[in-house]
Simulated scan of single mutants.
Amino acid sequence: MKYYNFMFKKKIAYIGSLSLIGMITTEFGVIGILPQIASYYHINISTAGLLLSAYAITVAIAGPFMTMFTSGINRKTLMAVTMLIFLLTGIVSSFAPPFWLLMVVRILPAFLHPVLVSNAVAAATSSADKKVAHQMMAIVMAGIGIATITTVPFATYIAGLFDNWQLSFMVQASISLVVLVAIIILLPSMPIKEKKSYGSQLKILTKPTFLVSAFFSFLMIGGLFSTYSYFADYLSKVNHMNPKTIGLMLLLFGSTGVLGNFLAGKLLTKDITKTTAAFLIGLLMICIPIYYSGTMSFSTVLLIAVWGFLQTPCFLTAQAYMIETAPEAPEFANSLAISFGNLGISFGTAIGGLFINNYGVQSTPWVMFAFCTLALVMMLLKKLIEKHVCRKS
């Protein structure tokens, strides 16, 4: 019986991972084509970057409320509806509408983005012991890394190969269709047995440790995207790579990221705080060689591989670090983790764009360094609060 339950959870976790592949392809697929979009619409790269930051800010603001309001709805239904919206908006985007409309259809699926992640994680981890729960969560979150090595670079590569950025959105829509069919056919119905009250969920916002971990997530994810949002532009202008090579570098980045995610999933079952700190410190250290990287060489390729290995697991570690502080409301805590992470994406992308406009794209690794240093400070502050609480009790 125990083995059957484990395999059942594993099946749900893999479908959840597939759902995240579709979601991440839509959210991050635009990164590799920002230069082409900027050229097509005759705007600068930081304005084109709004396609990423506007999506992220919508997730950040709407996420927790959407998760609470939909908390009583069948999880399969929610996941299917979300992927349908991703599919439709991808189709509209592929027709190269006016920039304002492109922005609108980018924002629409963002409203249900955290609902998809929260339900995928909750479905795979509910009624599981701590060790199994972290393993299932790692499987679901692996969808982020898998997308970065397969669908995201593939969409970028196709757009570069045919010199047509709209094809990237066509690839995104196709993947959303595959995921939607998989959810409908393979995912069992998952009605909610007991809906938590809004008050019991909101109560976690009064916990100092949770709030500090939320700011940690905001700062760390913001640091990642102050540079990664302009990955294609950085490799083009600093490392002098062409669009096809950039697509391959995205593939390499994601490939090593999957390995990093797998390792992080294993380590989280032993110690969440130490695992989170280890990957964060690794990112701090790699900012310097990224800044000093020059024309493409073997060392540049190796650097991108290490960067991907360290960065991709941070989505998993950030969520685990936050959810650990609010076991009484895991779904709502998960949605807040997504919201603060996406708020970090938006803010980091905006700050990165600001520095690009003033100091050039090569300045962004120092922005990442500053963000990650502040995130490390938040980890230390959380530790101090925990010690203070222990003394009082």
Rank of each mutant, 00 (worst) to 15 (best):
L187E: 05
C390Y: 15
L112M: 12
N239Y: 06
V30L: 04
S39L: 10
T26H: 11
K207W: 13
G160D: 04
D271R: 10
A124Y: 08
Y55V: 08
Y291M: 08
G32I: 05
T245I: 13
N342Q: 06
F262T: 13
S174H: 01
S197L: 04
V171N: 06
I304R: 05
A60R: 01
M103P: 00
F162Y: 15
L161P: 10
T312Y: 03
M103D: 00
K382G: 13
P153N: 12
T273N: 09
L250P: 01
W165Y: 15
L51I: 07
A62R: 04
P191A: 06
Q36H: 03
I73M: 10
Y157Q: 09
V115H: 03
L177M: 04
G223I: 04
E331L: 09
A320K: 10
Y41W: 04
K76Y: 03
L310E: 00
L224Q: 07
G143M: 05
G160N: 07
L18G: 03
T209I: 14
K9Y: 11
S93L: 02
S17A: 15
L259Q: 09
Y3G: 15
L87F: 05
L343E: 07
L302K: 11
A264R: 04
M68E: 05
V132F: 12
M241N: 13
F216P: 00
K244D: 13
Q172P: 10
L202F: 07
L310R: 02
V59Q: 01
A133I: 08
L187R: 04
I139T: 14
V115S: 12
G160H: 14
N74S: 11
T156K: 12
S335T: 07
G49W: 00
A326F: 09
A48K: 09
A60N: 05
S255T: 15
L20V: 08
V121R: 03
K237I: 03
H240C: 13
V301Q: 14
F99E: 02
V30C: 06
F262I: 13
T245M: 15
A329N: 07
